[in-house]
């Protein structure tokens, strides 16, 4: 999208509310909602990918070597990955300012 979201006016919106740019919502930083943050411990990870499957915000990336990385731009800090991790490689901590 050429303009940031808050500068878009009614003149920029197409007739019939057609949005012709697929996946444009990915510019929105849902990570701002977070009050808790996942912390990943690489040594305990068995690379099973459970967290990747269960993440509702697509905030977990599987790297080439099989380990994972949290995308804090999108992570809302729900804690599902920490709860479901079979080895406890992810813990959830309060976001400190």
């Amino acid at each position: 999208m050429a303009k940031p979201e808050n500068e878009i006016t009614w003149k920029d919106i197409k007739v019939g509310f057609v949005v012709d740019e697929p996946g444009s919502a990915s510019v929105y930083r849902t990570g701002d909602w977070r009050s808790q943050r996942p912390v990943y411990e690489r040594e305990r990870c068995i690379r099973c990918g459970t967290c990747y499957v269960y993440c509702p915000d697509m905030a977990i990336k599987i790297l080439k070597d099989g380990y994972i990385e949290h995308d804090l731009y999108y992570c809302k800090g729900c804690g599902i990955c920490a709860e479901e991790c079979p080895t406890g490689a992810i813990i959830i901590v309060d976001e400190e300012e």
Partner: peptide, 9 residues
Amino acid sequence: MPGHRACQG
């Protein structure tokens, strides 16, 4: 795509 406005969890 990510960036959707669903609640946490």
